[in-house]
Simulated assay, not measured.
Amino acid sequence: MIIPVTVATIAALCVAALGATITDLGPWYQALVKPDWNPPDVVFPMGWTVIYALVTVAGITAWRAAPTSAAAEWVIGLFALNGFLNISWSLIFFRLQRPDWAFFEVLLLWISILAMILYCGRFSRKAALLLLPYLAWVSFAASLNWAVVQLNGPFG
């Protein structure tokens, strides 16, 4: 079953590359007031690398464990939606420079991760467990996003 591995890996690399391309840590971002608990910028690419690897393995695991082709299509759809929301957050936060809007978008991203965990967990406990660090990471990111809004708003 090389197809799930290939598709999941290419999809994860595309999401990571698009997200990295959209992310701009230039003057606007550097000028934002951030909370004291904001990690150094170097932590984020390292964290995302681990997260993307776990999400890729979770996607492959869930796809292979899906009991029917319809269930496999749902796995693909949920992961695709999540990738779209992941990229959208970076676009809204960094390119549109709207952390306030990005906060509401990150809530949708969080819900999409929870949906992946719940759906995939029905037939693959391993896939669901592999997604838990992603949920934790995005929970932290959402808290950080909210703090940036509070410390810098209003935007627009």
Rank of each mutant, 00 (worst) to 15 (best):
S112T: 12
L78D: 00
G19T: 13
G47T: 07
A66V: 00
F84V: 14
V15N: 04
N82H: 10
D36V: 11
W89A: 00
Y52G: 07
I3G: 00
S143Y: 14
W63D: 01
Q30Y: 07
V43R: 03
P99C: 13
A53M: 15
R122E: 06
A11M: 13
L85N: 02
D36Q: 11
V149G: 04
G19E: 09
L18S: 11
A141E: 01
V7S: 06
R125I: 13
P27W: 12
I113D: 02
V42D: 12
I87P: 00
S90P: 10
A58C: 11
L109C: 06
F103G: 04
L132Q: 08
L108H: 08
F79E: 00
W74C: 00
N38H: 15
S112R: 10
A62M: 01
S112H: 10
A12C: 10
F140Y: 15
A141T: 09
I60W: 02
E73M: 04
V33A: 13
I111H: 05
E105L: 13
V148Q: 04
A71Q: 03
W48M: 06
P67M: 01
I76M: 03
D41K: 13
V148A: 03
L131F: 06
I22N: 05
G26Y: 05
L85F: 04
R125L: 15
A127H: 03
A71I: 00
A8S: 14
A11N: 10
L109Y: 08
S88A: 14
I113S: 02
I111P: 02
E105Y: 09
A11I: 04
T68E: 01
W28L: 14
G153Q: 04
W48Y: 14
V50P: 04
A80S: 07
R125K: 14
F155I: 08
P45V: 08
V75Y: 00
C14W: 12
Q30E: 15
W146R: 13
R125V: 14
F94K: 07
P39R: 12
D24E: 15
L130V: 06
S69P: 00
L107F: 12
F123Q: 08
L130K: 08
V106H: 04
R64Q: 10
L109H: 03
L118G: 06
K126Q: 12
L144E: 08
T56I: 07
L85C: 01
A72C: 01
N38G: 02
G153M: 06
D24V: 10
